[in-house]
Design a binder for these strands. Structure first.
Length: 431
RNA sequence: GUGGCCGUAGCUCAGUUGGUCAGAGCGCCGGGAUGUGGCCCCGGAGGUCGCGGGUUCGAACCCCGUCGGUCACCCCA
């Protein structure tokens, strides 16, 4: 049996990997322009980092974590999401507030794979700690919105809700519980006997029974305390002012316990598969304390790279454009010329590849063509004897010509311009 | 964790009611070309038909199991 990647994981090979790089770069330029700095944190953490914040009762902590014990007896877990580790890093280092950071990371969850859902997926995200300012919520949401649009995506929906805080949420939950108790018989079998622990789940249930049973149920956003209501209104006003479209959705419930106040979810409407959530996040004003830090509010968003790319495919946007090589060296007289010329080109900052194993000219030129290189540099018996190289354009227009071997680097550089391409960027001398 | 569908060459797939059914296209390698890629033509390599049992005179084709893939539920990115 041939080895293969574990279930739910996947390899990202060239040229798809180029698209990933471009996506990350696009995100980075957007958020760094807004003052967010890149942070790398370990891929695994003490399992408590996740248990405390995400919540023991959540599916992610309860049954989806990749947990393991290391040789020292520590119980660790591969990160199932990006926020908790970032907050842990904040608690540990206490950078000055406000702390605005972004990340790109794999995330691991033991779930049954399906379209747009993987056991290892990758997320881009930002976290902003310190301010309670609703404009910070607006900033984070607007950054994500702008990022999606910059990719060319059009069919992206944004749903918005408020989870309240420790003041108003408990009271609301009691209200909702009693309401559900009255209509218990109308709920779906799944929730009939288990809405006590997390009644919000019922609002999020997609079954027809629960849908109709909760038709007139109270929405959390209608039962917010004054500070939460004011915060929510200012977030909405900010989004309105910036022209970021959204829909209020009091059924929007997110699976992590740490969320307070503003929560939101971006979905790709162009995706026909079930998993169309491309980004989600919200405020977590109690999370820093849960992880042992001083009371510090915060807000963040996580964006799924795989799903985002699927959404781009569905809309036919954000295509890959791999950077082509400048030259491909064809050497049919032993290979020493290929070795020397490609190295000289590399040292000069010019992209060059070559054929190996002394194959036929036809085969080498075929490789040259497939490589996408802009020109072939041919060294055959004639050139070898004359101390020259034949420069044959493969892309663009131009005639084949013969140049002295000693001047091949300059000739290639000149030819790049002649063929109408951008000149190669200068490279550090060490390369 | 539960359920539907699927599992034939590197890739996409044909394979009629079980009896030359081990194939095609693409890709790959080589040749046609007097040293010159892309198009075309010719040839070649490559598969214990996921694996293990069973039924049968005979199974890629039927049955059971198993592994893998895929989609959906759940949940999330």
């Amino acid at each position: 049996m041939a080895a293969r990647a574990p279930s739910g994981t996947h390899d990202v090979l060239w040229p798809e990997s180029a698209r990933w790089e471009a996506l990350v770069a696009r995100f980075a330029s957007g958020v760094e322009r807004a003052g967010y700095g890149l942070a790398h944190t370990p891929i695994f953490e003490d399992v408590k980092v996740f248990r405390r914040g995400i919540g023991e009762g959540s599916d992610v902590v309860g049954k989806e974590m990749y947990e393991f014990e290391d040789r020292g007896g520590r119980t660790l877990a591969l990160r199932p999401e990006g926020t908790a580790p970032m907050v842990r890093a904040f608690v540990q280092h206490r950078p000055p507030l406000p702390w605005k950071a972004w990340y790109v990371t794999p995330a691991f969850r033991y779930e049954r794979p399906q379209a747009g859902r993987y056991r290892q997926h990758h997320q881009l995200g930002v976290e902003a700690l310190g301010p309670v300012d609703p404009d910070l919520d607006v900033e984070v949401i607007a950054l994500a919105d702008g990022f999606f649009r910059s990719l060319g995506l059009v069919a992206v929906g944004l749903r918005l809700n408020s989870m309240g805080d420790e003041v108003c949420r408990p009271a609301y939950l009691d209200l909702l519980r009693s309401c559900l108790l009255e209509r218990r018989d109308q709920l779906c079998p799944e929730h009939r006997d288990r809405f006590e622990a997390n009644p919000l789940r019922v609002l999020d249930c997609k079954r027809e029974e629960c849908r109709t049973a909760t038709q007139g149920a109270p929405g959390l956003s209608d039962h917010l305390c004054d500070p939460c209501r004011a915060h929510f209104e200012r977030v909405r006003r900010g989004l309105d002012a910036l022209g970021v479209p959204y829909a209020l959705d009091h059924r929007l419930v997110r699976g992590f316990d740490y969320y307070t106040r503003t929560t939101f979810e971006f979905s790709a409407e162009a995706l026909e598969s079930a998993q169309n959530g491309i980004g989600g996040g919200g405020r977590y004003d109690g999370l820093v304390e849960m992880l042992g830090g001083p009371p510090t509010p915060g807000i963040g968003i996580g964006i799924g790279i795989e799903r985002l790319l699927l959404a781009c495919d569905a809309e036919g946007v954000f295509p890959v454009d791999p950077v082509p090589l400048d030259a491909f060296v064809v050497d049919v007289v032993g290979g020493e010329a290929a070795r020397d010329i490609t190295t000289a080109l590399h040292r000069a900052g010019i992209g060059a590849d070559r054929a190996y194993d002394n194959r036929s000219m036809k085969a080498q030129l075929k490789s040259a063509d497939r490589s996408g290189a802009r020109m072939a540099l041919i060294v055959g018996p004639d050139e070898s004897a004359a101390g020259t190289v034949s420069l044959r354009p493969l892309r663009g227009s131009g005639d084949q010509r013969i140049v002295p071997a000693a001047e091949v680097v300059d000739a290639v550089r000149a030819a790049i311009g002649d063929l109408g391409f951008e000149p190669p960027a200068p490279v550090p001398p060490s390369l």
